[in-house]
């Protein structure tokens, strides 16, 4: 059974701006899926519709057999605990330490009182430390997040999502603000999350070559429509051209030795 089914998803911001039109997708458990497309194509909107940070205009989303769009406030909160999210700008609380930021991922499981005062049980703290170790942040545990580098911040972001014990990770341009070295570390971690922990990853990317290297499947979006959905091996320069339009000529994208231009 697929983990995520998107049917006829449409999002209009207003009468003129159509962010998504009639998107249909099925994503299976454990898949690593990249979403590529030019800026403003609707990639971020697609991701945010899944956990209802943005309300879709029409169509529906089934997550693990549950219709997301009809959930009540509490059920939605419950759903969001199962979906981790990481961001281009990390979105950490800079003034708090690494461990505090990672434990924020548990807030969705807590009642209001425990959440307000940040009361976490031993098990949660232990798993936080384990995640920190996996992500290689052991020396930064008690450091404030504004003292970390971009790559380290993004790893904290991944940690915060992982501690939710999610079934799906939504990654909104995770490496768009990072240097190539840090980008590789982050993508390797995401790949491991998918292949070793079996967590499904849906990653928005700007870099076609990164998408080709890491994903099981690539979805291309152009002006609010899905124009490609297939394995990286099926990707050709014509398809890149259809995704990026005339911009592709300047992209000079390397597809397994061939140039897209």
């Amino acid at each position: 059974m697929p983990l995520l089914e998107i049917k006829n998803l449409t999002k209009k911001y207003n009468a003129d701006t159509l962010a998504l039109s009639d998107v249909n997708l099925t994503i299976n458990e454990g898949e690593f899926v990249s979403v590529i497309g030019p800026s403003g194509a609707g990639k971020s909107t697609l991701l945010r519709c899944i956990n209802r940070m943005i309300e879709a205009s029409s169509g529906y989303i089934l997550f693990d057999g549950v219709n997301v769009s009809t959930l009540s406030k509490n059920e939605l909160r419950n759903l969001r605990t199962k979906i981790g999210m990481i961001f281009q700008h990390y979105n950490l609380v800079d003034r708090l330490s690494v461990i505090e930021n990672i434990l924020h991922g548990r807030l969705g499981y807590k009642n209001t009182f425990e959440g307000i005062f940040g009361i976490y049980n031993e098990e949660e703290k232990k798993s936080a430390f384990k995640i920190i170790e996996i992500l290689g942040l052991k020396e930064q545990v008690y450091k404030r997040c504004d003292q970390l580098s971009g790559g380290q911040k993004q790893r904290v972001g991944i940690g915060r999502a992982l501690i939710q014990k999610p079934r799906l990770m939504l990654c909104d341009e995770p490496i768009a603000s990072l240097d190539p070295n840090a980008s590789k570390i982050i993508m390797d971690h995401l790949r491991n999350i998918s292949s070793k922990m079996g967590i499904t990853c849906l990653v928005n990317l700007h870099q076609v070559n990164v998408a080709l290297k890491y994903s099981d499947r690539i979805i291309g979006i152009n002006s609010s429509k899905v124009v490609f959905d297939g394995a990286p091996s099926e990707m050709t320069s014509d398809i890149v051209y259809s995704i990026y339009g005339s911009e592709a000529e300047e992209l000079d994208i390397d597809i397994g030795g061939r140039n897209a231009s």
């Binding site: 909160r77 961001f87 807030l107 959440g115």
Partner: peptide
């Protein structure tokens, strides 16, 4: 947005 997306409620955020 990040905390809301992980299921935290208003007072917790």
């Amino acid at each position: 947005e990040a905390l809301k997306g992980s299921g935290a409620n208003w007072w917790q955020i």
